[in-house]
Each structure stands twice: as C-alpha cells, then as structure tokens.
C-alpha cells in the first residue's frame, strides 16, 4: 500500500525545480572548471599577458590609442578561449567518458547541460574582460565613457555564444584526445587572421581577405565600433554574420548529436 502511494507522489515538478537544475548545473560546472588549473590558468593568463606585452609595453608609453584598440582585439581573443575549449574539449571528453550518457539517462534537461557550459564561458569572459579593463585603465591610460565600458562588456560576454556554438560542433564530432589540438588549430590561426594579435592592415594584403569569413573578425569589429576605434563595416552586418554563424553551428551540432545519440 505504501509503495503504491509513494509511486504516485513523485510526479510533482514545477518550473522552479527546473530552474534549480539549471543553476546547480552551472554552479557545478563552474566549480569543477575552477579546480582545473589546465583550463582556468591559461584561459585567464594568456589574454592578459598578451595585452600587457603588445598593448601596454610594446606600444609607446602614454600612447593610449594602441592600448584602447587592443582592449577590443585582445578582449575578443580572450573570450574565445573559454567558449571554444569549454565546449570543444569539455563536450568531447565527457562524451567519450560516458558522462554524457549518464546525464542523458538521469532526468537532466539536455538544455541545462548546454546552459551550464555557456554560462561558464560567459563568466570566464567577464573575468577576462574586467582584468583587461583594469590593466588598460591603470597602466595604458585607457579612458572611455561609462556607456562604452558597459557596451564593451556586454558585447564580449555575449560574444562567447558564436564560439560556444563552434566549440559544440567540435565537441560533438571529435574524440577527446584530438579535441585540444583541433580547437587550437581553429583558435590560434583564426585569432591571427582576424587581426586580433596584429591589426589587419599590417598583414600581407592576400591574408587580409580571410578575415571577413571569420566570426572573430566580426566580433572584434563590433567591439572596436563600440569604443570608436578604427572599425570597418556596418554594425548590422557584423551582428547578422554572428547570428547566422551561431545558427549554422547549432544546426551542425544538432545533426552530429542525433547521429551519436543512438549508440
């Protein structure tokens, strides 16, 4: 009798419970990633180091134009990493280890998994952007109106989304061991070709043509536009590119996901 009664009482579940699952999943994701020095350290250190070397030390002291310009480009470079590696390597590893299968069997809403990883990338992006802001303002003499600081934060934090989607495509298709190499092969050349390390006009002309095809280029142009640095092309075009790029990646990821779901 008792067991029959128990069997019926388990069906209550509200949106609050679902929200709780999303938040706990994100918190768990963030907490475990923070304990992974191989992820957290390079993700936070590389962009700040690069910015210090090329934006602050390399430029003429007191030249706040370079420091301001590179805040946008190294900011873009910085926020790509947690998105690309978090999804690309994270999903590939968890898929290979059977963790994904366990989560699919447990009553976890699949979107909670994606939400957690996307939120983790955004939080890391926020920390990276704030680190660069402090460095730029204190040592590079970067001074921006408050509205531009805010807009830049928003652009770079939400700018993780296209790269999260791209990382997901990698994570769904590539095995765990290969994933780090593949992500690096996407991340580093893309950063260079999009003009994140060295401004585009200093690249050979024939190399400059690749930039327009890359999401990193369009995000960095958006960021440059916000701070009234030397941006090319209309804002709407960059935004449209990023939205379409994200949608295409998600479609590819869903197709790949369907294929591996039926094991």
């Amino acid at each position: 009798m008792n067991t029959a009664a128990n069997a019926i009482t388990t069906s209550r579940w509200t949106w609050r419970d679902t929200l709780g699952v999303y938040l706990r999943e994100a918190e768990y994701q963030f907490r475990t990633v923070l304990r992974t020095p191989g992820f957290a350290l390079p993700t936070l250190l590389f962009p700040t180091m690069f910015y210090v070397f090329f934006g602050l030390v390399f430029g003429k002291p007191g030249d706040d134009q370079i420091a301001t310009f590179m805040l946008a480009t190294y900011g873009t470079f910085g926020i790509m990493a947690p998105a690309l590696f978090g999804f690309g390597v994270g999903v590939a590893m968890e898929r290979e280890r059977g963790i994904l299968a366990m989560k699919r069997v447990a009553p976890m809403p699949p979107m909670a998994y994606l939400f957690a990883k996307a939120a983790m990338a955004m939080l890391f992006a926020l920390v990276i952007v704030l680190l660069l802001f402090v460095l730029g303002a204190v040592f590079g003499g970067v001074a921006l109106p408050r509205s531009e600081w805010w807009l830049l934060v928003i652009a770079l934090v939400f700018g993780t989304l296209p790269f999260s989607a791209l990382g997901l495509v990698v994570g769904v298709h590539v095995n765990g061991q290969a994933s780090t190499a593949i992500v690096n092969l996407i991340y580093l050349p893309m950063s260079f070709l999009a003009g994140l390390w060295v401004p585009l006009q200093f690249l050979p002309r024939w190399l400059q043509g690749f930039a327009a095809a890359l999401p990193a280029y369009h995000l960095s142009q958006l960021a440059l536009g916000i701070i009234h640095a030397d941006a090319r092309g209309p804002v709407a075009a960059h935004l449209a590119y990023l939205v379409i790029f994200t949608a295409v990646c998600l479609a590819l990821a869903v197709r790949g996901w369907r294929r591996i779901q039926d094991r």
Partner: peptide
C-alpha cells in the same frame, strides 16, 4: 517525467573531473 522515476547504473562510464 518517466525518467524522473528511473535510475540507472551504466557500464563503463569513467567518472573523472575535479568534483
């Protein structure tokens, strides 16, 4: 809703990570 009433122990999942 059906899975909320179900638990499963799968073969061979490698639990790792820093949790």
């Amino acid at each position: 809703a059906a899975r909320r009433r179900t638990g499963a122990m799968l073969q061979g999942a490698q639990l790792g990570g820093h949790a």
